[in-house]
Simulated assay, not measured.
Amino acid sequence: MVAIATAAPEATAERQDSPDWYDLLVEAVREPGQLSAAYKYFRNYSLCNRWLAAIQLRKLGLPLMPINTFKGWLGAERPVQREQKATISLVMPVPVKSKKKDDDAPKGKDAKAKKGAATRTPVAQPDEKEKRFTRFMLRRHWFHMEQTAGAEYQPEAVAAKDWTVETAMSFFEITERPFEFASVTDTKRMGWAGGKEISVSPLDAHPVYGRVREMARIVLGHTAAEPGKFVPTTADMRDLEAETVAYLCAATLGIEGLEEGRLRLQAAMDEAAERIPDKVANRAFAAADKLLNAGFC
């Protein structure tokens, strides 16, 4: 008879709400081959969660293996064994509540007048309105297969599809225009993106990688008429963000030009005066995930 564990609450003292996005990126640049392996093994997860799972399994001294939640393993007829605790943390949507004071609460002189009359008439306290929103946070809810026992595990079959840059472009309604050289010395510029159009230089030895890089600028919002508040304000940081997305996609899919892209990204990271902001690395992982998913549609 298999001893079944009960799902234990997380130790709040050990909780970390957000991954270190920069460290995740550094690990990905250091070992590009592992991104591809993690993608194939954890295909139903987002790119960042695939990579998070792979890194944590490696730190535990374990090979890539199936992971699941407590309930998920029960459904697979492989209950988590007694005294086993969740070991894998992934990013998941978490509903959050916050309270906001009513704007109609008394202020200034009115508030003082109300306070002075408190002995005669009770003063109504400011109303607090509840606001609900969703945050993506790290939660330790996953167990690896060696923590379970039971029926032979058969991973869910995933339909095999080939990723194509044309499919991704069609999904985002991106069109490609012929590259035009600005002058006879215009040999270093490998491409551009504007609006929902891209162009890649015929001198680019790896045109698919180049298309992914220019598409990344559009997905990241670099070419929007009114860039969002999280879009980097400097051209160098926008270039680095787009290069990061292209590298993550190339490392995951094995796109030609990966090694050259890795060297460019590594050089840019080494030359940066400060550590790349976590928000930039976070946005890069999210944009790469969108491009990867779009290419299979």
Rank of each mutant, 00 (worst) to 15 (best):
M1E: 15
A11K: 13
T12V: 13
A13V: 09
E14Y: 13
E14D: 15
Q16G: 02
Y22N: 13
V29T: 12
R30W: 06
E31S: 12
E31R: 13
P32V: 02
S36I: 02
A38M: 02
Y39Q: 11
K40G: 13
F42R: 03
Y45T: 05
Y45K: 09
L47Q: 03
L52K: 06
A53K: 08
I55V: 12
N68F: 01
R78C: 02
Q81C: 05
K100P: 06
K100L: 01
K101E: 15
K101H: 01
D104T: 15
K114R: 12
K115I: 11
G116E: 15
E128V: 08
K129Q: 12
K131S: 04
T134D: 10
R139A: 11
Q147H: 09
A160R: 05
T167S: 13
S170C: 02
F172Y: 08
R177E: 12
F179H: 07
F181C: 04
V184A: 09
D186I: 07
D186Q: 10
K188N: 13
M190Y: 03
M190F: 05
G194C: 06
G194E: 14
D204H: 15
V208L: 00
Y209G: 05
I218H: 04
F230L: 06
F230G: 06
T233C: 00
T234G: 01
A242D: 06
T244P: 04
L253E: 14
I255T: 14
Q266P: 02
M269Q: 12
E271L: 06
A272C: 05
A273W: 05
A281H: 08
F285K: 03
L291R: 04
L292V: 05
G295P: 08
